[in-house]
Amino acid sequence: MSAPETMPWWIALPVAAFLLLGSTLTLLGALGLVRLKSFYDRLHAPALGTSWGAAAILIASLLSWSWLQDRVFIHELVIGICVMVTTPVTMMLLGRAALHRDRQDAPPPARETAQD
């Protein structure tokens, strides 16, 4: 078990900072998902978690694992690329689906008013 105790301060400090940044951004994104009023606004909320939220936590993990295992740990990179490439596909499909469904339901196309 674990080893974060042996970490020197100059690596623990950036790891802690990236962890705080990443988890706060993800939490704010989820908060926006609940708070915002219209669907198209909410579509922007998870982008906080998938862009810098995920990136910061992955950087923190990369730093700490590379220190602990004495080799560059690359799993984070694969996960990061996977998230980065797959999010646009989901968002694009969801946006198109929402527009399609709104056009089907209501004759005037969705503008920035709430379409709940």
Partner: peptide, 25 residues
């Protein structure tokens, strides 16, 4: 569906942080 996307991203990050804490890759 949008919330499902946010849910799985948050869960994935939670797994990574838990792995860091427990020291298991």
């Amino acid at each position: 569906v949008l919330a499902l996307e946010a849910l799985y991203v948050a869960t994935m990050l939670l797994f990574i942080v838990t792995g860091m804490r427990m020291g298991t890759p």
